[in-house]
Design a protein around this nucleic acid. Structure first.
Ligand code: MN
Ligand code: MN
Ligand code: ZN
Ligand code: ZN
Lengths: 134, 134
DNA sequence: TCAACAGATTAGAATAGTTCTAATCCCGTG
DNA sequence: CACGGGATTAGAACTATTCTAATCTGTTGA
């Protein structure tokens, strides 16, 4: 059948390859990893000639996150960030301009995490190194 | 002059000891450390008979944070958390119920943080261990 | 002691990010 | 090619937070 890679990727994730999803996948995964916000992705889509509503951008970000092809990064209490890099890594967060920079997972390490309270399991360990321009 | 401790603390922080601030300080610092949300603090204040508007709770949380007697903890993209423990420590975040648990700063350690990009300085390193009830 | 003023509080309106609704659309199957 | 269920969408709704502008109160100096 030789589907395009974007269509492949959606099928693999169990998502119907609609025009919007295919174009968003192409935008997101064609050229290295990227960090985004719903608004920033919607703007980038518009700039790239991809016609998609903000509601669909939100839906898509959540579906992709659930499907494991995106991950959510919590660094700011007022905005959700998403990341095309779902591998083991952490972040610098530039507080001045709201920018994220990857820290490879094999460079950084967290030690001495106590045993979680009884009946709880660790889901994920997030490190955010907050930096500022000076 | 022998001011009450709450009044002392506010003076030391350069804040006028108004009725609302004094009562909030008493609520916040009388009995061990606590984590809170603007809404939860407003509710607790009400329950304790402290009459204060939600706007003042928000103002106060931000002023206290700026003054260094509270710190903000970013764990959830949709709500701001504050912490009376301003010392060196990290958190478990129970994703099921939105609860925070302290991890003492001398138990946990982060190593291998790369040098920040030129012209940037590290402000703080935050670790969030996300856990869930099972 | 108290007038006066700057800072603080407040109710309610406004804002911003996100989610919801319910009407329309379109992908996949037969 | 018709159909059915999932997907998209505009716009309304929602929620946390901030703003506004009127009122109040802590502080100070006469
Ligand atoms: Mn979300
Ligand atoms: Mn804030
Ligand atoms: Zn990343
Ligand atoms: Zn804490």
């Amino acid at each position: 059948m030789m589907d395009e890679p974007a269509v492949e990727r959606l099928r693999a994730a169990g998502l119907r390859p609609t025009r919007q999803r295919v174009q968003l996948v192409e935008l997101l995964f064609s050229d290295g990893h990227r960090h985004m916000t719903a608004e920033s992705l919607h703007a980038d889509a518009g700039a790239a000639g991809v016609q998609v509503s903000l509601a669909t951008v939100y839906n898509t970000l959540h579906q992709f996150t659930e499907a494991g092809i995106l991950r959510e990064v919590v660094v700011d209490a007022s905005r959700s960030y998403f990341d095309t890099n779902t591998g083991d890594h952490q972040h610098f967060f530039v507080e001045n301009d709201g920018t994220l920079i990857d820290i490879p997972g094999d460079e950084i390490a967290v030690s001495g995490i106590p045993t979680p309270p009884k009946g709880h399991a660790v889901d994920r360990v997030d490190v955010v190194v907050r930096i500022r321009k000076n």
